[in-house]
Nucleic acid binder design. Structure first.
Length: 231
DNA sequence: GCGACAG
DNA sequence: ATCTTGTCGC
C-alpha cells in the first residue's frame, strides 16, 4: 500500500513563499510516542545527478534490519539547494518514490533534519506532516542548534538546543566516530527516535535504512531474492 | 559587512 | 549533493 499525502501545496514557489509555507505547516507537527513497536522501518535518501533528483525508499524488517523492498522515482529538480529549504528541492521526488512503495513502513527515517531546523520544518517533519505518517530525521551534520560534544561511547547523546528548547539529539552511534543529528520528524518522540536510530545502527555510523537508501539512490539495486520475498 | 549553512 | 586519488589508520 503506497504512502500518499493527505494534502499538498505548491512546490514551485519562491524562497520567501517556501518559508511562509513552513511557518503555516509547523502548527501541525505532532510529538507523540509511536503507537506500537515498529515491525518495518524505511530509509529515505535522495541523490541529484544532472538536475534530476532520484529518491530511494528502502523498506526493512525491524529489529532484524533485513531489506525487503525498494522503490525509486526520478524527478527534475526545480528548486536550488538553500539551507533550510531542502524539502522544496527533494520533497517531490521523495513523495513520488513513496507512492511506488508496496509495503508499509511503521516509520520513515530520513537522511535529513526533522525539528532540528530554524522553523522546525526539516524535510523529515515536512513530509511527515503531508503524509500524516511517523517520521524521524537523522542527519550527518548540523543545520541548526547548539550542543556539547557527546561522550565517546556508543549510545551516548547530548541535547541539541535552540535557546531553552531541545530540538534534537547529537547521538554517537559507534565509539570513535562522528555523531549523527537525530530529531523528531512527526508522530514520534525524541526518546523513541534516538532508540530507533541506535537500534538501526548496530555496526556502522549511519542507520542501515539510510545506508540502503543511499546506495539505491546512487543506482545500486537490492538483491532480487530479497525484493520478492514479501510478495 | 561577516560567518553559518541538512543535502 | 557533487567534483575526485591517494592515503592514514585499524
Amino acid at each position: 500500500m503506497a504512502l500518499l499525502p493527505h494534502f499538498t501545496h505548491p512546490w514551485d514557489v519562491s524562497p520567501a513563499e517556501a518559508r511562509a509555507l513552513q511557518d503555516r505547516l509547523r502548527a501541525q507537527v505532532q510529538v507523540v510516542p509511536l503507537a506500537s513497536p515498529p515491525r518495518f522501518v524505511a530509509g529515505v535518501d535522495v541523490s541529484v545527478q544532472d538536475e534530476v533528483a532520484r529518491a530511494a525508499v528502502v523498506l526493512l524488517s525491524f529489529p532484524d534490519l533485513s531489506p525487503v523492498e525498494a522503490s525509486t522515482a526520478q524527478v527534475p529538480v526545480s528548486f536550488p539547494y538553500i539551507p533550510g529549504l531542502l524539502a522544496f528541492r527533494e520533497g517531490p521526488a521523495v513523495l513520488a518514490a513513496l507512492e511506488r512503495l508496496r509495503g508499509q513502513p511503521d516509520v520513515l527515517i530520513f537522511d535529513a533534519q526533522g525539528l532540528a531546523h530554524p522553523r522546525r520544518m526539516g524535510l523529515a517533519t515536512h513530509l511527515g506532516i503531508l503524509l500524516d505518517w511517523p517520521s524521524i530525521g537523522c542527519a550527518k551534520s548540523r543545520l541548526w542548534g547548539d550542543h556539547e560534544e557527546p561522550p565517546p561511547q556508543r549510545g551516548s547523546w547530548v541535547p541539541l538546543w535552540d535557546g531553552d528548547e531541545i530540538i534534537g539529539a547529537v547521538l554517537r552511534t559507534q565509539m570513535g566516530v562522528q555523531p549523527v543529528y537525530v530529531s523528531v520528524g512527526h508522530r514520534v518522540d525524541l526518546e523513541t527516535a534516538i532508540d530507533l536510530v541506535l537500534a538501526c545502527a548496530p555496526t556502522y555510523r549511519l542507520p542501515e535504512p539510510i545506508r540502503w537508501a543511499h546506495r539505491v539512490a546512487g543506482g545500486e539495486t537490492l538483491p532480487v531474492a530479497r525484493q520478492q520475498a514479501l510478495f
